[in-house]
């Protein structure tokens, strides 16, 4: 009778599902670097895979597909936000370059005229994010004042929803998942969020923001479950 060698035996048990948690983690890591193990696993997946055909199907809950779509929608928004952010950064760089040229001329003029402005540079204080639908509809405004350490989210004019609530999320690749900033519904409603300068503020300034439609009382799972309708990112609002 055929015997399984160590690699094949490990691969077979990994696919069969009989390994402990620690062993599974170890195999998952090893297969990345070890081609023979990875190939052996793929071969066992092919051998045993047809068994799933004998499992009786169970219909998923009606809203599961929407949850999946919302998760995909959120990740796509983040991707497109990143693209938009890069475009803005490139544009800002062009303006900066143009500005350097202009100021050089200005400086030489200033030199000629012997005029000197006492120019004190201040750090930017005001940041704003317009949370829109990607087209023209602005739903929410997010402002951040780094002088007072206060962020404010304002519902500008989101469409009225019956039996649903708007929930605001902060998304960052430095966090494991979206973080809820709370619910804001009525046009004109404001929600203040005091924060600490330092890492918390840095995270906030570089995050993306999204608003999803959730059941009254907010998402039951702690992550967006409904469609993501508005997204945006903070930009500097004052020089």
């Amino acid at each position: 009778m055929t015997e399984l060698d160590d690699i094949d035996g490990l691969a077979a048990e990994y696919v069969l599902g009989t390994l402990t948690r620690e062993e599974r983690v170890a195999v998952t890591e090893r297969r990345i670097a070890e081609r023979p193990l990875d190939r052996a696993i793929a071969a066992w997946e092919r051998r045993l895979g047809p068994l799933v055909e004998t499992v009786a199907p169970v219909a998923p809950s009606a809203n599961l597909y929407n949850k999946i779509r919302a998760q995909i929608g959120l990740s796509q928004h983040v991707v497109s936000l990143k693209a938009r952010e890069q475009k803005l950064a490139r544009r800002a760089a062009r303006w900066r370059n143009a500005f350097v040229g202009v100021s050089a001329i200005a400086a030489s003029l200033v030199g000629i005229l012997g005029y000197r402005e006492n120019f004190e540079r201040k750090d930017a204080r005001q940041y704003v994010a317009v949370l829109d639908t990607g087209s023209n509809m602005t739903g929410f405004l997010l402002t951040l004042d780094t002088g007072t350490n206060m962020a404010v989210i304002t519902a500008v004019n989101p469409p009225k929803q019956s039996n649903k609530t708007y929930q605001v999320w902060m998304v960052s690749d430095k966090m494991s998942g979206p973080k809820s900033l709370g619910m804001v519904d009525r046009p004109g409603e404001m929600k203040k969020m005091p924060m600490q300068s330092g890492p918390e503020m840095d995270l906030f300034m570089n995050a993306s923001f999204a608003v999803s439609l959730e059941p009254l009382g907010g998402s039951p799972t702690g992550s967006p479950t409904g469609p993501v309708l508005f997204t945006g990112k903070l930009v500097q609002a004052t020089p």
Binding site: T2, A12, R47
Partner: peptide, 17 residues
Amino acid sequence: TIKTWLHRSLAQLKGCL
């Protein structure tokens, strides 16, 4: 014992397939 059974059964399956 279970592990031995599993490995033998899987080897037999592989041979048969």
